Simulated assay, not measured.
Amino acid sequence: MNGHGLEPHRQGGTASAESGIVLLEGPGGVAVALTPDAAEATARSLDAAALEARGQRPIQSPSIRI
């Protein structure tokens, strides 16, 4: 995802459960409601992407934000 012009957030999101739904609140006002299955799939995907990103060279542009 190069060239999207957004600065990556340095704060993580917070997850909670309410009435059988997983609520994910992230930085910048991001909010997502997920089923438990979708939350587990998202957690696996985020974990895999974070592991992969740690092995990559950082983008040099200061104007990259996700």
Rank of each mutant, 00 (worst) to 15 (best):
1 M>F: 02
2 N>M: 07
2 N>P: 05
3 G>I: 00
3 G>E: 03
5 G>W: 01
5 G>I: 00
6 L>M: 03
6 L>D: 00
6 L>T: 04
7 E>Y: 01
7 E>M: 02
9 H>V: 02
9 H>N: 06
9 H>E: 08
9 H>G: 01
10 R>K: 04
10 R>N: 05
11 Q>E: 12
11 Q>S: 09
11 Q>D: 11
12 G>H: 09
13 G>V: 01
13 G>E: 03
13 G>T: 01
15 A>W: 09
15 A>V: 13
15 A>I: 05
15 A>F: 08
16 S>L: 06
17 A>S: 12
17 A>T: 12
18 E>P: 01
18 E>R: 14
18 E>I: 06
18 E>M: 09
19 S>V: 06
20 G>A: 14
21 I>R: 15
24 L>C: 11
24 L>M: 15
24 L>E: 06
25 E>T: 15
25 E>K: 15
27 P>K: 11
29 G>H: 02
31 A>G: 06
31 A>V: 10
31 A>F: 13
33 A>H: 13
33 A>T: 07
34 L>N: 01
35 T>D: 11
35 T>Q: 07
35 T>R: 11
35 T>L: 04
35 T>P: 02
36 P>K: 05
36 P>D: 02
38 A>T: 06
38 A>S: 07
38 A>G: 10
39 A>P: 06
40 E>S: 07
42 T>G: 00
42 T>Y: 01
42 T>I: 00
42 T>D: 00
42 T>K: 04
42 T>R: 08
43 A>E: 09
43 A>P: 02
45 S>Y: 07
45 S>I: 05
46 L>M: 14
47 D>I: 04
47 D>A: 14
48 A>M: 03
48 A>S: 10
49 A>N: 07
49 A>W: 08
52 E>H: 08
52 E>I: 10
53 A>G: 03
53 A>F: 13
55 G>S: 13
55 G>F: 09
55 G>C: 09
55 G>A: 13
55 G>P: 07
56 Q>G: 07
56 Q>Y: 02
57 R>S: 13
57 R>P: 05
58 P>Q: 06
59 I>A: 11
59 I>S: 12
60 Q>Y: 04
60 Q>M: 08
61 S>F: 08
62 P>E: 07
62 P>K: 02
62 P>T: 06
62 P>I: 03
63 S>L: 13
63 S>M: 08
64 I>P: 00
65 R>E: 12
